[in-house]
Nucleic acid binder design. Structure first.
Lengths: 241, 241
DNA sequence: CCAAAAGTGTTTAGAGTACACCCATGC
DNA sequence: GCATGGGTGTACTCTAAACACTTTTGG
């Protein structure tokens, strides 16, 4: 199949190939009102790591692209459609799984948590705060940490933040997304200036009623819908191996 | 092996898994003296795409990590050690290869072209200017384009530029790297200022003799040696699918 | 001396930051 | 009125860019 000289030497035991997905959504803390990052995990129902929580995943179907497999995977565990989906990294260390050699191609996704999706919890599927997702099966702790790193990196450059939100949002909500992802609070005045002049966002003539303060204006994201991505690069950083 | 419900349904024909590597080096044009990006390609010696040029690659060995496989692959075709090696992307489209489903995990590397390495050309291994590497086998045109995009993105942020150069270099040589990668000329005065204050580079007390102008000072890279990478992220951008 | 690259200085424009201040709403 | 977040203005700092200028070498 390939070009280099020795093709058939080293493929005694072909490694298994699987797809996993790190799915992020925002939920606001009922007391503080601040947004927090959550992700769904799946309980393992067989060895190894039986009973531990793990990233949703499964084998790659024979007639689906890598991205399709990740999207399917996402629908199967959350019943939600991704608003953003991007490849994270291919993990192939020798020590990842005990029995057989396993290569996992991991995607990360953003979803808008509506009633249906977040309600879909069960004995074996549960949402966790990203900050509390520890002790996962395999090397999934590191994968989640790396996905968060990528999310942080990408929110500062690209336009992923909008994919956490609905089609109308206030600048305060958008700022909440940034604050949740970056883990620090941002100056409202400066944030406003930066994003009012951002070209892939535009003001509507509506305001959000019902708050107990001055009703804020609603904005709309008008940039590209990057469910299947295509934006500009910068680099990933290989994760903790 | 994995957690989601239906494990054994879709894995009728397991996809083949291969590693490929995009290897970049700089060579200076003998007439203009400007640096240019080159990469080695391998001629295919079997169907499909027999006779076309392709990225060096091959199957993943059963007892090597993904990165080790890429490094081996690189040594086998160029006899050089990588000064930088990083995962690029996992390509798994359905239309990539005719016969069997193929998933390729692609790495990109930088090397310092010494006599040995660049001389290692043969009937089936040849170096090409990156700008002239077109009409390659499979989807390798797009992979090379994406690797160049990543290189450009990463040179502006990270510290990959030094990995094209030897351990002593002038600021003009370093600027040549940037100009070759970014494809535009840079102001020597401003370039100097930026990089003299960069913290992972330090001046030596030597100068480069033998030019026909004022002898320039030599500098040394003192930052982390990222052959096996670990730096900070920002994001990749999924390539043209 | 002359050409050419090495290296320095100065000016300007823009982006990010800090923070004082006014506006509109619910209570 | 008053508390609170929405929204505006302004001053300051830092960096990149543009570009004039001096220095040091080989020929």
């Amino acid at each position: 199949m390939y070009s280099s000289a020795n093709v058939s030497e080293r493929q005694a035991q072909a490694p298994a190939l699987a797809i996993s997905t790190v799915i992020f959504a925002l939920r606001s803390d009922p007391t503080s009102g601040r947004s927090e990052i959550w992700l769904p995990l799946v309980r393992r129902i067989r060895q190894p790591h039986l009973g531990k929580w793990a990233l949703p995943g499964g084998p790659l179907g024979g007639s689906e692209s890598l991205q399709d497999a990740a999207a399917r995977n996402l629908r199967e565990t959350t019943d939600l459609e991704p608003t953003y989906l991007e490849q994270l990294y291919a993990f192939g260390g020798l020590d990842r799984a005990a029995a057989q050699r396993l290569v996992s191609i991991v995607y990360w996704a953003l979803v808008r948590p509506d009633q249906a999706g977040l309600a879909r919890e069960s004995e074996n599927v549960r949402w966790f705060r990203a900050s509390e997702a520890a002790g996962l099966a395999f090397d999934h702790d590191e994968i989640v940490a790396y996905a968060l790193e990528r999310l942080r990196g990408k929110i500062e450059y690209g336009s992923v933040a909008y994919h956490f939100l609905g089609d109308r949002f206030t600048l305060a909500q958008l700022r909440g997304v940034y604050e949740a992802v970056l883990g620090r609070s941002l100056d409202p005045a400066n944030f406003r200036r930066q994003f009012r002049s951002a070209k892939d966002i535009s003001a509507t003539d509506e305001v959000l009623q019902g708050g107990r303060n001055r009703p804020p204006r609603l904005y709309r994201y008008t940039g590209p819908v990057a469910t299947a991505p295509l934006p500009r690069p910068a680099e990933p950083a290989p994760p903790p191996s």
